[in-house]
């Protein structure tokens, strides 16, 4: 019985906080737009009994999903989000790997402090941190002022409201999610493996490529998922730092919801986004499992 209770807790959690909300959203995605409170129809009225429920079901349809296929906006937005998420993930690896490497190779007594420094930004609100980038990147911002004062540029660079600003914002925000798993992988790496590689004829550089990189692969993969998955649906960063040409599915979803007030289509967009996300999430799970098996 106790065993059952223990298992039931996480499942109840999943059911209450994931499955039930998803079913609600899914149900809305099958509804029709209406000018009412709430702005869709039909609404489930349990007082009408079984007949009412059947009537309710009969009014649901997949019209909104068909609509998504009829306008190229949606698949272009999904694609563009995937592209931005993929590029951001690669950039995050490029920036995060050397940091994680440096941390893992730092003297042991420093590592706790370095880890703390990586996590420290989380103590400040995410919004405030993204806002501060607006102050840094704007045309009259600190970056341009600095570059102009040292004479690198004569005209201010236009960074804010472009995709570059979005990449900067995403890389900045999600960097810890990349650093931490890579650091965990690199820290586990036995120094004697590198010595063994050198002993067997590797230069420092080739030992890095042949030993360090393959052995931190799991960390890089884990970090990539942790960055890619939330970035795909990211809304705040592109809407604050991006320009009108930054097309991401999060913004499309916002517009469906707020500008069109079309909750059913917005829900359909969300359901499709979730389905797209489930693929990398399953891959991520598989990867984790493989790693656990490998570690025996």
């Amino acid at each position: 019985m106790r065993r059952f209770t223990l298992i039931a807790i996480p499942y109840a959690w999943l059911l209450a906080l994931f499955l039930v909300p998803f079913l609600i959203v899914f149900k809305i995605s099958l509804s029709d737009l209406a000018m009412a409170i709430p702005p869709y129809t039909p609404n489930l009225d349990l007082s009408t009994g079984w007949a009412g429920f059947k009537d309710f079901l009969s009014q649901l349809d997949f019209e909104n999903f068909i609509w998504l296929t009829q306008d190229d906006l949606y698949w272009k937005a999904y694609l563009s989000s995937a592209k931005i998420a993929a590029i951001s993930t690669i950039l995050t690896i490029i920036v995060g790997f050397p940091i994680a490497y440096g941390m893992a190779r730092a003297p042991e007594e420093w590592r706790a402090t370095l880890l703390m420094l990586v996590i420290l930004p989380f103590w400040t609100s995410f919004l405030i941190r993204v806002y501060s980038w607006m102050g840094i990147l704007s045309q009259e911002g600190y970056l341009n002022q600095f570059l102009m004062s040292i004479g690198v540029i004569s005209e201010p660079l236009i960074i804010l409201n472009t995709n570059i600003a979005v990449y900067i914002g995403i890389v900045y925000t999600y960097l810890p999610f990349m650093i931490l798993p890579i650091y965990a992988a690199l820290e586990k790496l036995d120094e004697s493996l590198l010595e063994a590689a050198e002993d067997l004829g590797c230069s420092r550089m080739s030992a890095f490529w042949l030993i360090t990189v393959p052995l931190s692969k799991q960390g890089v993969i884990a970090g990539s998922f942790l960055v890619f998955i939330p970035t795909l649906g990211e809304f705040v960063i592109p809407s604050l730092l991006g320009g009108s040409k930054t097309l991401m599915i999060g913004k499309v979803l916002w517009e469906e919801f707020f500008s069109n007030r079309d909750w059913p289509v917005a829900s359909a967009v969300a359901v499709v986004l979730l389905l797209i996300l489930i693929i990398p999430i399953i891959l991520f799970q598989r990867n984790e499992q493989k790693q656990r098996e490998a570690e025996g």
């Binding site: 493996l193 063994a196 030993i211």
Partner: peptide, 8 residues
């Protein structure tokens, strides 16, 4: 090596 240092 004492730990064998086999490449996993």
């Amino acid at each position: 090596f004492q730990s064998y240092a086999l490449f996993p």
